[in-house]
Design a protein around this nucleic acid. Structure first.
Length: 194
DNA sequence: GCCAGGATCGTCT
DNA sequence: GACGATCCTGGCG
């Protein structure tokens, strides 16, 4: 995983982050759900122009944009596209792979599906707070690895983004088809015991 | 299982 | 002074 990976269209980056391993300290998980936000997008924090909060979005690719949501949750984004172009990928869900006991303590829940299945949940599980805003995703405490073969072939489906009111119809959410670890069950599907 | 309501605070009008 | 890129709980069926 290198800087060039993030120096592309935010949509490609959002798609390609699916299946990658994201680690923070002792904890890690495989990214199974993302959303793309670009500068010309009314739902993007950078849409209104440069402000103190969204500063990091205009900076170089490959950094973390972390902000406080609803006064309670830290949400983690990966800044994409060249410096000056404000765009980012919201990390919405992980399949936990390492440090699961620590995640359980931080989350106060035991079920694997409840540890990282949402943007606010995974930051709590990984210990990501506002102090990491602007930090380099390619350096500790972050750790990003390209998807291993097992994940290279999974089916990725797209659909509308979640929790926004502006430009909600744009199909810029990406997630692993059928994963039990995404923030919301995918509309389609299927399998019900008879 | 589904839905309504509350928690909580930095940022921008 | 209002508003969220959310999560959890409790009530009801």
């Amino acid at each position: 995983m290198n800087r060039e990976f993030f120096d592309r269209s935010v949509h490609e980056v959002a798609r390609d982050l699916i299946g990658c391993q994201l680690g923070v300290g002792e904890t890690a998980g495989v990214i199974v759900e993302t959303e793309a936000y670009e500068a010309a997008d009314p739902a993007c924090h950078a849409y209104v122009g440069r402000t103190a909060r969204n500063e990091v979005l205009f900076g170089p690719p490959g950094r973390a944009y972390v902000y406080l949501s609803y006064g309670i949750h830290s949400l983690l984004n990966a800044v994409a596209e060249p410096e000056g172009s404000a765009a980012a990928v919201l990390i919405r869900a992980l399949e936990p792979t390492r440090g699961i006991e620590l995640m359980r303590e931080r989350r106060g829940r035991d079920e694997l599906e409840q540890l990282c299945s949402g943007p606010g949940k995974l930051t709590e599980a990984l210990g990501v707070g506002l102090e990491l805003n602007g930090a380099d995703l390619l350096a500790p405490p972050f750790e990003l690895r390209a998807s291993d073969p097992k994940w290279a072939t999974v089916e990725v489906v797209t659909g509308p983004r979640i929790g926004i009111t502006k430009a909600a119809e744009l199909p810029w959410r990406y997630c692993v088809s059928g994963s039990r670890y995404v923030s919301r069950p995918w509309p389609q599907v299927e399998t019900r015991a008879a």
